[in-house]
Amino acid sequence: MPKGRGCKQKGDNFERELAAFLNEYAYGRSLCHRAPLSGGGSVISTGGADLTGTPGLFVEAKRVERCAFPNALEQAERNAEQTCSTEHPIVINRRNRQCMEESYVFLRLGDFLAFYHAWLEREGHPHSN
């Protein structure tokens, strides 16, 4: 199990891999990037999202075996509030030996409904509020 610098490097690599994955499968172009100076460590932490160029999403990326999702989401929400972001805070977690598309996404139900309503509209299934 990596410790110290190894854990940070694993997290940094995950952020880069996640950005590349989103660019290929969500955006179809190079829109998303790892935020400069993101990641753990009190010296370099900026309190922003881990990824930039993710319209509507305030991404907290976690590359850990056991993710405390509520705590991670609260961290994303605090950071979003501190930076005056209006984007939806989400946590994306990938475990060891897990392929990227099997990563977990954690968000508040109210935020999920915003995305689900948009999908319903796109698919021709109107919803009522």
Rank of each mutant, 00 (worst) to 15 (best):
M1Y: 11
K3Y: 09
C7K: 15
C7T: 14
K8W: 11
K10I: 01
G11S: 13
D12Q: 12
N13W: 08
R16V: 11
L18Q: 03
A20V: 07
A20Q: 10
F21T: 02
F21Q: 02
F21H: 11
L22S: 03
N23S: 08
Y25H: 15
Y25K: 10
G28W: 15
R29E: 14
R29K: 15
R29F: 15
S30H: 14
H33Q: 14
H33E: 12
A35R: 11
S38H: 05
G39L: 14
S45L: 06
G47P: 05
D50A: 03
T52A: 04
T52I: 15
T54S: 05
L57S: 00
F58H: 04
E60C: 13
K62W: 03
R66Q: 13
A68D: 12
P70G: 03
N71V: 00
A72D: 01
Q75L: 07
Q75P: 06
A76K: 05
E77M: 08
E77T: 15
R78S: 04
R78H: 07
N79V: 01
C84R: 13
S85P: 07
E87F: 10
H88V: 13
H88L: 13
P89A: 03
V91Y: 01
N93A: 07
N93T: 01
R94G: 00
R95I: 04
R97Q: 12
C99E: 12
M100S: 05
E101P: 13
E102G: 12
E102W: 08
E102L: 11
L107C: 07
R108N: 06
L109S: 06
D111F: 04
F112R: 02
A114M: 13
Y116N: 02
H117W: 05
A118T: 02
G124V: 07
H125G: 01
H125T: 13
H127V: 15
